[in-house]
Design a protein around this nucleic acid. Structure first.
Lengths: 148, 148
DNA sequence: ATATCAAGTGGGAAAAAGTGGGAAACGTTA
DNA sequence: TAACGTTTCCCACTTTTTCCCACTTGATAT
């Protein structure tokens, strides 16, 4: 399971180190796509197959989505790239994806269960503040459940 | 069952000793996550599996399509970390969690049934005072009127 | 009281992770 | 085909993390 948060440098060649903890699980080839909330999603090839199957399959599943999410889904396929992790664990972020997520000299790499997300680190910090508040409510449910 | 309260040092390398009484039950790998009331939750891997399963990103649906789910998952997984207990019973608290719980040089480690909590010890002391008062009030309610 | 042991704390050295950059390989264009 | 810009590969430096050893303290037993 991919968990945790790391701030890493993006160098002049658009390379960023995959945190060592994630390398084994991510494997040699990864898929980067534009994500929701102006971050990038990073999938293993295996996870990507699942995702693209589900997104592509039934119209019903898509029907309840908002229009901007539909737009996102189209982009997701069109803008997806497969990238090879280099010998010391770095990946190359194409310019158009870098711009898309407004990435600059540093980025936050987040483990979210079975995908990674890459954020502009400042945007991430801001996002987190709000997420905390919302999460507290849900967390109470969680703790309650674990006692059953 | 994990019970009791201990105040331990957090050293310059962000290490804190797991109280000896907790070590056997916690095992070799533990999961730390943000908890309620700005403390940290510490789960055994087993307990964590339960918890993360209960959240159940439902298999049929892509969890990242819903905004609330994204927020929750980012907080839940992105702010969690798995840590190995070292050979003499210490764990390492990542900076982002240390900040989140406002931990300084010492922390309170509390056994709460099947998880631990790590608090800023001063905050913990304060919290306890209130908890005591509330307990008295709640006890009276329980004994007195059956509903409000 | 002293020796012993377990628990907690601190810190140095080795190893790993992260970062930067040069040079070879590739491809494109004039 | 030569010149130029990109990309890829590899090496080297720096920082961080991990591992291990040793000291301190407090409780227990003799």
């Amino acid at each position: 399971m991919l968990i945790g948060e790391y701030i890493h440098t993006i160098d002049e060649k658009n390379r960023i180190s995959l945190p060592a903890k994630f390398r084994k699980e991510m494997g040699k080839i990864i898929i980067i796509t534009p994500g929701l909330d102006s971050c990038l999603f990073v999938f293993t090839t295996k996870e990507w197959e699942k995702v693209s199957k589900k997104l592509g399959s039934s119209e019903e599943e898509l029907s309840f989505l908002k229009s901007d999410q539909r737009t996102f889904n189209r982009n997701m396929f069109g803008q997806a790239v497969d990238v090879e992790v280099d010998s010391i664990g770095r990946i190359l972020i194409p310019d158009f994806l870098k711009e898309r997520a407004k990435l600059k000299n540093t980025g936050a790499i987040i483990g979210v269960q079975d995908r990674l997300e890459i954020w502009n680190d400042k945007v991430w910090i801001e996002y987190k503040k709000n997420a905390e508040k919302q999460a507290e409510v849900l967390a109470e449910k969680l703790v309650g459940k674990s006692d059953e």
